[in-house]
Simulated assay, not measured.
Amino acid sequence: MSTAPRPTAPAPASLPPAAPSLTERRKAETQLEIARAAAALFAERGSAVTADDIARAAGVAPRTFYRYFRTKEDAVAPLLAVGVRQWLAHLRRLAAAADGPSVREALERAARQALTPSDERAAEALRWTRGLLRVMRDDPALRSVWHRVHHDSEEALIPVLTGLTGGGPPEVRLAAAAANTAMRVAVETWAADDAPEERTAGGAAGQADEQTDAQADDPAELVVRAMRALTAGLPGLDRRRT
């Protein structure tokens, strides 16, 4: 005796990525608070800062500090990575827009947004980053953290650029390396430059250089110039999303 076929259950819809749990958000916020304290201390005292100093300034026990970070230098990584995460977030938003800008324009706009503070807390983080980069000149361990953050940034750029450019692995890796290097060099150049009040700009030469000095003190302007210089030979970045 034949039976009617049993209805099949519909395929489950793909679920969106789960939001971070409350525990994960609290952990990330604690790490960032410790990173802010570490950055402020390093900028003020240099490499003489200890892990205990950082823990005390952040209001946590040394045991808590070492739960999150292996060394005192590692403690600044979350703060240094904030700008990178913002850059990638801006880039993904631009990439998601239909009839959006070319990949090259999206990279420039996203980098400019990431280096233009939206509020006082973001401006303070950028100032701390500047102080850290100045200290790094004489601190190989801190420089190692900075380069590790940018290595991770370059790796995170690859899947984003793969979707935008449609290029092969060599082209995409080259584009990610060029864009990431532009960001790093721009911030390092800005950090190394003297503050405006420390410059001496007298006479006709000083007046002629006034605009250049203003641009040198704006990391957002520097990153656009660096991005254009380093990506000029990559025609795949002229593709537009339609």
Rank of each mutant, 00 (worst) to 15 (best):
R67M: 12
L94C: 09
L222R: 14
W128N: 15
R109P: 01
G83Q: 12
T200D: 03
S118I: 14
E171V: 13
A19W: 02
P140M: 01
R184N: 10
E33G: 10
W128S: 14
E105N: 03
A175H: 02
Q207V: 09
N180H: 04
A61Y: 03
P159T: 13
L126Y: 02
A232I: 07
A89L: 07
L79R: 07
A177Y: 05
V223S: 10
M136P: 07
G83E: 04
V135S: 12
T242H: 04
V145K: 01
E73P: 01
A205Y: 08
W128M: 15
V145N: 05
R127Y: 10
P196V: 09
T129Q: 11
E155A: 10
R6T: 15
R134K: 09
R240T: 15
T71I: 04
R67K: 09
A220P: 09
L107V: 09
P12I: 11
P17Y: 00
A39T: 07
D74H: 07
E108N: 12
M1G: 14
S144L: 04
A192Y: 02
A57W: 00
A97D: 15
A75G: 01
A182E: 02
S144D: 08
L157F: 09
E33F: 04
A178Y: 09
A9S: 14
G202R: 11
E154A: 10
P10M: 04
E29N: 13
E197N: 05
S144A: 13
R148D: 12
A48M: 05
A204T: 13
A125T: 10
V145Q: 00
P12F: 02
T165H: 02
P10Y: 01
Q31R: 12
A186K: 10
T181K: 14
T165R: 04
A43N: 05
R225H: 11
M227I: 14
W128P: 06
A43H: 05
A9Y: 01
